[in-house]
Design a protein around this nucleic acid. Structure first.
Length: 585
RNA sequence: GCCCUUGUAGCUCAAUGGAUAGAGCACCGGACUUCUAAUCCGAUGGUUGCAGGUUCGAGUCCUGCCAGGGGCACCA
């Protein structure tokens, strides 16, 4: 938007610089702060610093201001701008507000549900996230990964990428064997109840405790592992059955969270190919095989001539069984071969940064052409107040199911109060959308690199900077449109003097496409979370200051258009965050 | 020891190298006969951990220090 006008200004300034024998520096466009008016600014400090014509004793800000005055003079009367002035070293160019508002709102209404989405980028990106372990619980700590990964996938999609959502489920390993062994010894024949994940998790905690406290049990687990390794049919059958219970529980949770996956990888699926991959590492002379006395490992620091940077990556146990790294390597290859992607993003918590770095480096040493296109999207963990790490063994966890149930219950009480006449089913649906939104928002609204401290009070707070606040603005917009009726006229011809609240709102509407691209480029949903809140706040300001339905005819018409455009932007930004926008609350 | 990361209002957090560092929560005082009060308005609250440096300009970039968190060979 306004590219023509910008080009015109840049041309003029370039000519001015040439005429004044000033260096031709690239211009920087910025928003003007404190504006009740919409415009763009150009700082002239850099130019002033380079200009020869000034007294060297004159401070730069003063030179910049002199220059700005001069430039503003030469730009006077330029078409498309209502006012051009020099302030504190900046040239401020104000757009004629009605024309600006008209352009923005027209564009939003034309694109409607697609406003904010970019044209296809040609990129095919896989985002791997969630990665739960079967036979374990899902707690709030795991939630951040799912929410972050889902939002990143949505945002990349909106930014024009073709996105493949992948999950990588840990369905085998020592934790599973512990569970199976404990089940066979102490719980044989028992079935999970309604909440499968909780039940599986409880049994895991029990097994894990036995494993640590009871040496006899540990021996039993080792024997059990050997049975798994020779694929004892009873063990395999039990594994298949119990794994299924876990998966059913996970899919229930994903459905509640509104997440779906295009491809689910399993660790069991890449176990064998991992061992083959390790063989090729040995043959390539990259890995050192010390079996049976030691493991198979890649001494990355030695290969790269580094010290204490990449360290040593162990890729196979000395007994020949597989490790995390063993499976991760062929999985990376599989992703590129299966989907012909050109970028692979791993949403994995920050504690695994070194491991991810090692795996990427090993793949690079194997000369995969795509090895430069692997990204670890690291995020910090979720702690409990007092910096307590969630641990099922210590019982310091908040189960997802408990959180969702409690949050939904609270939301439902409010819906009952505010909209007693709605159908019960609809009330529950609204309460779910609000509850899930309230849970998701705080995990998205901060930097990925910052620890989230979970506390019940904040999680259940539906006021202030929160998803319900944004959802509520959306509901208000919808409510106005509904009351206006279908025969209402939506006219995007704006009057010359708009209220500051209207200008501010229009400005925010115009920013959505750029914010989406920025969030996609940096893989930071927090930008959009902040944006959505700012937009909702701007809409609430407008709502309070500018009556719509009772406004005079022409004003009502353009305000209705503005409300409709706002509603699209609120909804679109919420959806990208993976948060639903209900019509009534 | 080496590496990563965080440090901004009482608390939780924003701020694309630019103009006067902003929100929410909490606390205090107001606004529902109104397009839904899950809202709004007002008040209070700051040496951006410390010290240098780069820059016309630093919360933001660089160096050092302090403090918290995390990681560093067969867990994932």
């Amino acid at each position: 938007m306004f590219e023509e006008e910008k080009a015109l200004v840049e041309g003029k300034i370039s000519a001015y610089c040439q005429q004044q024998q000033l260096p031709n520096l690239p211009l920087e466009w910025r928003a003007i702060p404190f504006s009740g008016e919409w415009g763009m600014a150009i700082p002239l400090f850099a130019l002033a610093a380079k200009a020869q014509s000034f007294d060297p004793k004159l401070p730069i800000p003063q030179r910049a201001q002199a220059l700005a005055q001069d430039v503003a003079q030469t730009l006077q009367g330029l078409k498309g701008f209502s006012r051009i002035e020099a302030v504190r070293g900046y040239v401020n160019l104000y757009f004629s507000t009605s024309e600006y508002a008209q352009r923005v709102v027209t564009e939003v209404l034309e694109h409607a549900d697609d406003f904010g989405s970019a044209d296809p980028s040609g990129n095919k990106t896989m985002v791997e996230y969630s990665q739960p372990n079967t036979h374990k619980s899902m707690h709030v700590g795991h939630l951040r990964n799912v929410i972050l990964g889902g939002a990143v996938a949505n945002i990349l999609e909106s930014a024009g990428d073709q996105v493949i959502r992948a999950n990588y489920i840990g369905d085998i390993g020592l934790h599973v064997i512990k569970w199976l062994c404990n089940y066979e010894l102490y719980h044989l024949g028992e079935q999970p109840g309604e909440d499968k994940t909780r039940w599986m998790g409880d049994l895991y905690t029990e097994a894990d405790r036995r494993f640590h406290d009871d040496p006899g049990f540990e021996t039993a687990v080792r024997k059990y592992f050997a049975r798994w390794d020779r694929q004892d049919p009873d063990v395999v059958a039990l594994w298949e059955q119990t794994r299924q219970w876990s998966l059913e529980g996970f899919y229930q949770i994903y459905e509640v969270l509104g997440e779906r996956f295009d491809r689910v990888y399993f660790e069991s699926e890449v176990e064998e190919s991992g061992k083959v991959f390790v063989d090729s590492l040995i043959q390539a002379g990259l890995a050192i095989d010390e079996r049976p006395e030691g493991p198979v490992y890649v001494n990355l620091d030695e290969l790269l001539g580094k010290k204490e940077e990449y360290r040593v990556a162990v890729v196979l146990r000395s007994d020949g069984t597989s490790l995390y790294a063993t499976k991760e390597l062929p999985l990376a290859v599989m992703k590129f071969e299966e989907y012909d992607i050109n970028r692979s993003i791993y949403v994995v918590d920050v504690r695994q940064s070194l491991h991810m770095k090692q795996i990427f480096k090993v793949l690079e040493l194997m000369n995969y052409r795509w090895s430069g296109n692997l990204y670890h999207l690291a995020y910090e963990i979720v702690n409990l107040p007092g910096n307590v790490t969630m641990s099922s063994r210590d019982g310091t966890i908040v189960l997802l199911d408990d959180l969702i149930r409690e949050s939904t219950q609270r939301a439902l009480e409010i819906v009952h109060q505010k909209n007693p006449d709605l159908q019960e089913e609809l009330k529950l649906e609204i309460a779910r959308d609000v509850a899930i939104g309230a849970i998701k928002y705080p995990m998205l609204a901060r930097e990925n690199t910052k620890v989230v401290t979970f506390d019940w009070q904040t999680a259940l707070d539906f006021n202030g900077q929160s998803a319900p606040y944004i959802q509520y603005a959306h509901v208000r917009a919808g409510s106005i449109l509904r009351k206006a009726g279908i025969e209402a006229s939506f006219d995007v011809r704006f009057s010359a003097d708009l209220e500051p609240a209207e200008i501010n709102l229009v400005e925010l509407l115009s920013k959505l496409p750029a914010e989406v691209l920025r969030a996609a480029r940096e893989l930071k949903p927090s930008y959009l979370a902040t944006y959505a809140y700012d937009l909702a706040k701007a809409f609430n300001d407008f709502y309070n200051q500018c009556p719509v339905l009772n406004a005079p005819g022409p004003v009502k018409a353009y305000r209705l258009a503005l409300v409709r455009a706002s509603r699209h932007c609120l909804k679109n930004s919420l959806h990208m965050l993976g948060i639903k926008a209900p019509d009534v609350m």
